[in-house]
Nucleic acid binder design. Structure first.
Lengths: 201, 201
DNA sequence: AGTTAGATATACTGATCTGTGTAACTGAAT
DNA sequence: ATTCAGTTACACAGATCAGTATATCTAACT
């Protein structure tokens, strides 16, 4: 009920276990296909506790997406904090994170998948998904501008499509290794836009 | 029941109306969220007829995806038949189709969306989705090879990610116009890979 | 010691969903 | 004229699902 803000450590023990179980189940099996009874059972918690903590399944879905967004941004921000990278290499960081991320998340983008099941634009999931993509888009633009790219907004759009496409294709054609080839393409686009000539891969 | 092959015109009047209604509803609202009662009502046909024609909801879902794949391939093949295009321009044709396609299909890729809701890898939808993506991947590779690209397989992978990413992003950030910027990026990649220098956009 | 928040246990409601049973109707082809 | 595939109308079974009711237990904080 009070978890709308989803303060990182402000969750009770039960709420944390519910969120962990729900995250795994929602991502692996889909949101509509997973019932609250299964989530309660998998998290070793009563359904009553689930409703006491989150209020409704929709609110739990929103909490799942917000938490996932938070974890993903943490991974990107952590990689951005690594020292000794050129400005052009820094633009590529989301792709470096992506290649690791898909190893543990082979079912594509959780936000795209959630929107597929939740057509109502007023569902909180839509805002969370849009925020996540816009955050990455803005990050690409900022990093591109810092690397001296003239039309950083355009390049950011292109890198976003490459990034999201590679993530989605891994769920359908995991053998095609789109993440690696997309990284190479992104590298080429960045170099062309920045006017450089060194190779980063 | 006999519609597993989905012969184009071998459908009865009722079956065709069911498939049309199901296609619109599944794409716009999601598969699990749409019940067979609603499909029957929207198509002006009895639920009994629906089960007589398609046997089960899962089979109807498979027919929906196969039909959609067929319509999309027709659009691409039609564009490929247009005369007077350079070999490099031909590699870009799926992107030209995409920019038109998303105007009537703003909810992203129906196959990606379906997989999000159907985690069972044995569901026929998985095969249909994989076939659709592999067909486009092979088409990109063939067109790239015809345009004189050396590593056509690598370029095809990159173009696929760009294409699918733009399609997916249109569902989340429709204002970002990823289809146009992705087309430009694809154009640049094709030119760089083919060693040419003319602009196609 | 007493209060209180968090959690347990279990049964239940009401709605929805996929799929079936049965009987009758329609229209076209043989 | 008869046959037969396609369809209608409608009720119903069986399962699942989100969410609630009620009463009890536990552990920490004051």
């Amino acid at each position: 009920m009070n978890t709308t803000a989803l303060d990182p450590d402000a969750l009770t023990r039960g709420a944390r276990r519910i969120l962990e179980a729900a995250s795994a189940l929602f991502y692996e099996r889909g949101i509509t296909a997973v019932g609250v009874d299964l989530i309660a059972e998998q998290s070793g918690v009563t359904k009553r506790t689930l409703y006491n903590r989150f209020g409704s399944k929709d609110a739990l879905v929103a909490a799942y997406l917000v938490d996932r967004d938070r974890r993903w941004r943490s991974a990107v921000n952590e990689a951005l904090a690594a020292p000794g990278m050129s400005l052009q290499q820094r633009v590529m960081i989301p792709f470096d994170v992506l290649r690791e991320w898909i190893k543990l998340n082979p079912r594509g983008c959780a936000f795209i998948n959630a929107l597929a099941e939740l057509p109502d634009p007023d569902h909180p999931a839509h805002q969370v998904a849009a925020d996540e993509k816009r955050w990455l888009l803005n990050l690409f633009e900022r990093l591109a501008a810092e690397a001296g790219v003239a039309r950083a907004g355009l390049l950011a759009n292109q890198l976003l499509s490459l990034h999201e496409g590679a993530l989605a294709m891994h769920a359908v054609l995991p053998d095609s290794d789109c993440a690696t080839s997309a990284t190479q393409a992104a590298c080429g686009l960045v170099q062309a836009a920045a006017g450089g000539e060194g190779s980063n891969l």
